[in-house]
Design a protein around this nucleic acid. Structure first.
Length: 481
RNA sequence: GGCCCCAUCAUCUAGUGGCCCAGGAUACGGCCCUUUCAAGGCUGUUACGCGGGUUCGAAUCCCGCUGGGGUCACCA
């Protein structure tokens, strides 16, 4: 049977790194097995959900190349894919549960439960919510055993009926997970305004959408027990669960939007990371395929399996991401990199087309750039007219002997029949032989004249990139300095 | 605090009882290459949290401790 998996983000901000990895792993699983990847928007938190966030999440997934078979913009056989569009369905399921005595209407107001908390706190001499938890505060509804229907607002609560047994499930990553069933409490299914809460809508939707495997972060383990209780009460078949280890920030806490800027997927685009590099990196964070580190997209699809996901949380390692980015910048065809690079150059006010010149520039700088931002910055001077000489570099390399070498080089360059790196490069050797000078004594003055500084790609590549006219212009300017 | 999950280098990880006085990658150091800077090649330092078992033999299995993380809403 082909698996049906899903990614179900709540649109309360940008696409989070953890979410992206969850999406990726589910997507990979579906792709490898020829299954279906569903995108469902869990927008029931009306306080925080926004259309902009929906767009941000879709944009993030698109940038990473994670496409969905069913969901927003695609439709599918189990609509709607936005939870707020199926309120009636949740209501019906809740009513069914009430009718069967498996849920009840709780007319206690929010203010009353808050008062209960305050009373409890006062009796124990406590103050905040955290203290209450530690002291074991537990809400118990007076409406639990009642069935009458009043003309008052109510929430629908699930009526847990613990048997003193253990409740649990077989997790694809963690193995058998269990806890005592009396550890669960009567969680809310429907709020006063009729909008469902996560534990409820999630179960209804996963069932309605015929989801076979639920892969999500370990932070959901405890809610899974509640959801299992719901599946049992509803008599629905449970999906297979797979709980993924968390991605931690440098401070060892779960990567969060507030504390960790790197949690934003698109921040990496802005930083000049290739989407595939990010994909490669996050996929390998918590999953492995032997000692392999670098994977093409096809290999990821070929190798990925929930069974190879690890159990331990992983710490975000920006340097490793950069090194992986470096690798893909180096190995992706220059044409592709050039096209991707155009907007980064634009941001630096360089209007470059993805043409032959830019491709050569990419070839020259690919082994030298960690990010596309780096690369754009390095390439920018090659699109300028003239260059400002770095004072220290000029002082060191453009003294009398330096200028003498430069003059010799200029004469030879001017006589060149062709302006390409292989033709330009030997000039350094020729002058070295003629004068007995070291290559560096020739190449460095040339480099300073051409680039203003002491570092650049090989001198042939550098001058070829600049073009004959621009090179001559800069040499003359340096000679006249 | 209750409950739940986890535990190999600084970090990501390989490892499913002998092939491991623990391998790869990143980072860090050295050497080589070299007209600069990179890249590349070679190489070095660094880990099985602790204590008990089981076994001829444990990083691998069991127990305890310790440590880390998650979760306890009319958020998801």
């Amino acid at each position: 049977m082909k698996p049906r998996v899903r990614f179900a983000p709540s649109p309360t901000g940008y696409l989070h790194i953890g979410g992206a990895r969850t999406a990726l792993w589910n997507w990979l699983y579906a792709r490898r097995l020829g299954g279906t990847f569903v995108l469902r928007i869990e927008d029931t938190d009306q306080e925080r959900s926004t259309p902009e966030s929906v767009k941000a999440i879709l944009d993030g997934l698109n940038w990473l190349g994670i496409d969905w078979d069913e969901g927003p913009g695609k439709g599918g056989p189990y609509p709607p894919y936005f939870q707020m569009e199926k309120l009636k369905r949740y209501h019906d399921v809740a009513e069914q549960l009430i009718a069967e005595g498996k849920a009840y209407r709780d007319y206690t107001t929010e203010e009353e439960t808050a008062q209960l908390r305050r009373d409890f706190a006062a009796s124990k001499g406590l103050t905040d919510k955290d203290d209450l938890r530690k002291a074991g505060f537990k809400y118990s509804s007076p409406w639990r055993e009642k069935t009458e229907k009043l003309e008052k607002p109510f929430v629908v609560r699930f009526k847990l009926q613990p048997k003193g047994e253990r409740i649990g499930f077989d997790d694809l990553v963690l193995g058998r997970l269990e806890k005592p069933d009396d550890d669960l409490d009567d969680f809310v299914l429907l709020r006063t305004d009729g909008i469902p809460l996560y534990n409820f809508s999630c179960v209804v939707d996963d069932h309605d959408m015929a989801i076979t495997h639920v892969g999500r972060g370990q932070e959901h383990i405890n809610s899974t027990y509640s959801q299992v209780a719901l599946y049992l009460a509803l008599g629905w078949q449970q999906p297979v669960f797979a709980h993924f280890p968390l991605i931690l920030g440098q401070n060892n806490e779960k990567l969060s939007k507030r504390k960790h800027p790197e949690a934003d997927v698109m921040a990496h685009q802005r930083a000049g990371v290739l989407p595939h590099a990010l994909l490669n990196f996050i996929c390998r964070l918590g999953w492995s395929h032997g000692n392999d580190e670098l994977f093409t997209r096809a290999q990821l699809v070929e190798f990925f399996d929930f069974a190879d996901v690890g159990k331990t949380n992983g710490v975000w390692n920006a340097q490793k991401l950069l090194s992986i980015n470096e690798h893909w910048i180096k190995t992706t065809p220059p044409t592709e990199i050039a096209a991707t690079l155009v907007p980064y150059l634009k941001a630096l006010e360089v209007d470059a087309a993805a043409d032959a010149k830019l491709e050569s520039a990419v070839k020259a700088f690919a082994p030298r750039a960690k990010t596309l931002v780096d690369m754009a910055q390095s390439i920018k001077p090659y699109y300028a007219r003239g260059v400002t000489l770095d004072a220290a570099a000029a002082a060191k390399h453009l003294d009398a002997t330096g200028k003498d070498m430069l003059t010799r080089a200029r004469a030879k360059l001017a006589a060149l029949p062709e302006w390409t790196a292989p033709v330009i490069d030997p000039i350094v050797d020729v002058i070295a032989t003629e004068t007995g000078a070291k290559k560096g004594a020739i190449a460095q003055p040339l480099r300073v004249a051409a680039t203003g500084g002491t570092t650049s790609p090989g001198i042939g590549d550098t001058l070829a990139l600049l073009g004959r006219d621009e090179t001559m212009l800069r040499i003359d300017a340096a000679l006249g300095s």
